[in-house]
Structure formats: structure tokens, C-alpha cells
Amino acid sequence: MIVTPEPVMRNRAIIEVSNIFATYEKDRLRRQATWIRSPGVTYSCGDCSMSESKREAFDKFFTTDAGKGLLSDFGRIVDVLNAEQEKDGPRAYSHRHAPNLRIEHQEHKLAAAIARAREETAEKLQKEDFSGVLRSLAKLHAPLQAFFEHVTINVENAHLRLNRLRLLAEARRVMASVADIENISAWDEGAA
């Protein structure tokens, strides 16, 4: 008869309990939001009411360069806002930016692109033209890239800094109005 030492038995019990908790957590998360995984894209639809046409539009768009660019832009915006929000508080960027505080050319271009995207996405959502909605959001890529490249966000003038962060928050809100982009990630089919 082989006798298993007590520490080994204790470790097995810990691993078993850990697995039970891990399974419980996975089930809890699965109940909270259904994750949809199709070739090239993983995303969440909280109430899972996403129509087949919307799902198809997402599948096609987020595997393109434009889709990957949009995800990258969104991630960059979220990173900047989260980092700065620790200093400014959770509601600091909930107001719209002040047009009279836009100084740089790129700020004006980004504000115009956000307004255009907001209008176009609302119109296309009414028609359930999901591919068109995503193409409208993709038009934010160039102005966002120019903004990040040429505009310094953390300037000494607190009003300008806050205004620039609010402008980015507006871009985030327009993107998030279409989908829970924070829960979308492109994945490589080879890694699946």
C-alpha cells in the first residue's frame, strides 16, 4: 500500500477547491455576458440580442485593417482617460468639450469627425446598416491619429488639458454607442 504524504494531499485539496472556484467564476461571467467568438473576432453582447446582420457586420469589419485600427484607437483613448481619471475623478469627462478651447488644428478636425460620426451612426443604426455604422466609426481613425501625434494632452493650462480629455471622451462615447467595444478583441485564428 502506498501512503501519500499529508502535504501532498493538502496541495491536491487546495488545487481541487481552486478549480471549483474557477469553474464557478467562469459560469458567473458566462451568465453575465455571452461571448461570441467567430473567425477573427471575439466580442460580448451583454443581453445577447445582437441580430445576425449585426454579428456578420462585426465579424467582417473587425478582421480588417480599419477594424483593427478602430480597436487600437479605442484602446488608446481608454488608456489615456483611465490614467488621467485617477487625477480628475470619475465624472470629470462626462461633459462635452468647449469648442472655444480648441486651439490646435487637429482638435478642430477631431471634433468635426466626432460630430460627423455621431450623426452618421445614429442615422445608419436607424436603418440597421451595421456595416455602414462601422465604416462611419472607422473615419475617426485618421483624425485620432493626428490628434495623438500633434496635440499634447497634458499641458500646464488645466482648462485646455480637461477640454482635450473631454474631446477624447466624446470619441469614446460615440464608439461605445454602437457596441461594447471594450469587450471586443481581434484574435488570430492560428492561436485558437
Rank of each mutant, 00 (worst) to 15 (best):
N154G: 09
A33R: 15
D79L: 02
A83S: 14
K109S: 01
F58R: 01
D47V: 07
A115P: 01
A192T: 05
K139G: 08
L101D: 14
F58G: 00
K60D: 10
G69E: 15
E25Y: 11
D129Q: 05
P39K: 11
I153P: 08
A22L: 08
S18R: 05
E123D: 06
T63V: 15
P39S: 11
D59F: 00
N183Q: 15
A138P: 04
G89S: 01
F130K: 02
R37D: 09
K68V: 09
R28K: 12
V78G: 00
R91Y: 13
A169M: 04
I77N: 08
L137W: 07
H141N: 14
H97A: 09
A179N: 10
R116M: 08
K127L: 12
I15T: 08
A146S: 08
T23V: 02
L125Q: 11
L134V: 01
V8G: 00
R28L: 13
K124D: 01
A112N: 11
Y93G: 03
V8M: 06
A112P: 01
T34C: 10
R76M: 07
E52R: 12
L134A: 08
G67T: 04
L71N: 05
G132W: 06
E120R: 13
V133Y: 08
N183L: 11
Q106I: 01
A22C: 00
L134H: 04
G75E: 04
E86P: 00
L70F: 04
R37S: 14
L81I: 11
M175N: 11
A146L: 04
A171P: 09
H95E: 15
A111I: 02
I103V: 13
R10K: 08
L137D: 04
Q85K: 13
H105E: 14
R166A: 01
G67P: 09
G132V: 08
I15Y: 09
E25N: 01
A192Q: 08
K87I: 13
N157S: 11
A13I: 06
L101S: 07
A171M: 07
P5L: 03
R96D: 15
E107W: 05
E182C: 01
A169Y: 11
D47N: 12
G75K: 07
L71T: 05
N157D: 15
E120L: 15
H97C: 06
N154M: 07
F130C: 03
V8P: 00
D59S: 12
V80S: 02
F147M: 04
N157I: 15
F61M: 02
